[in-house]
Design a protein around this nucleic acid. Structure first.
Lengths: 182, 182
DNA sequence: TCGCACATGTAACGCGTTACATGATTAC
DNA sequence: GTAATCATGTAACGCGTTACATGTGCGA
């Protein structure tokens, strides 16, 4: 027990609520859609699906598409109910560990340039992320799924946050002298 | 090995770079300052400090302050060097798992009210967080430490992000019909 | 005197990542 | 032919949380 309500399992059930998929496909879809806030590794995905099938939350069908073996998983009624129940529960807050902020917090121990370059690097990363999110947003806008509005919300969340990060970068870099030489 | 460069250890060394502290105090200070982006549990803190002492990165002194036993840890030169080296390294991105966003993403599976109430709850939490951060910001402003500017940056980061979250909440709740009864 | 904050530690457990292992198919 | 992608799975390891265990000192 415990497994039944584990978040990894719920994420998998959620993916299958979109459409039947193979384990591999679930991983791929996650990478392309929820990567910014959720991801599962192979070592998690395959055993979890097996377990979920044992518990009757998903069903699998072996499919030989062009001789390549493939297991297509489908959400069972019980699985859908479990997912719904979990979705209705309040989210417990996630313990976040942000290495970048930790380094920033202890910045007084090193030369300012070092921290400034970290921030610039961070700025670059976020800028890239934001571009990606904007593309994803446009893609979702073309989709006519019941899921689409919720997907949009989560993307817009990411965009909003990314913009705030960039604003913060600008503020901090502004009030920081550029390249002080001694 | 591996432990020497573990992030938990670096967080502890960082705390000791502020001033010598007991394990218990490190935990307390983290709760009051870095809680938003970093925390360590007891089961991590005490063994890690022991290990760090074995490696010569910290030194301890037993102090009997009013008969109550207490171990005061101090950063060694080697420890400070290790910290500095780590601070100069680029941060690897943290794998974030955000349960709230995951539920939002799969929101189409349940009634809209459920998701709306999740968002409202989230909004309340962030509002509280923001208030706390503002208080912390004022406290830091009164401090005259070399650390203060960096502490301010990290707080301001939190504030910026919190505001963005609230903005997003408002946007999403606005375009959502209030309490549709069928 | 009772409960809370101070104070230190250990053990078990669960979760998640990484690396390993295998093999087919497709595009170049 | 060879590299990339599709596809599934296992095993070992490390990290982190939770619960357990113990005890002091202070304020109401």
């Amino acid at each position: 027990m415990g497994r039944k309500t584990s978040k990894s399992s719920m994420a998998i059930l959620g993916m299958l609520s979109i459409e039947p998929m193979s384990a591999y496909a679930i991983g791929k879809v996650m990478q392309q859609s929820t990567a910014a806030f959720w991801a599962e590794s192979d070592g998690q995905l395959y055993p979890a699906l097996k377990q979920l099938e044992k518990e009757g939350l998903v069903r699998s069908k072996k499919i030989a598409y062009s001789t390549r073996r493939k297991k297509l998983y489908t959400l069972s009624t019980k699985g859908k109910d479990t997912l719904k129940k979990w979705l209705a529960e309040e989210s417990q807050k996630n313990s976040i560990r942000n290495e970048f902020l930790l380094k920033l917090f202890f910045g007084a121990n090193v030369q300012r340039d070092i921290i400034v370059s970290h921030i610039k690097k961070f700025q670059d990363n976020v800028t890239q992320q934001l571009e990606l999110l904007k593309v994803q947003e446009e893609v979702i806008r073309t989709k006519d799924s019941e899921h689409a509005p919720y997907w949009l919300y989560s993307i817009q969340y990411g965009i909003q946050i990314a913009k705030a990060k960039l604003q913060w970068c600008r503020q901090v870099l502004e009030n920081s002298p550029k390249e002080v030489k001694k």
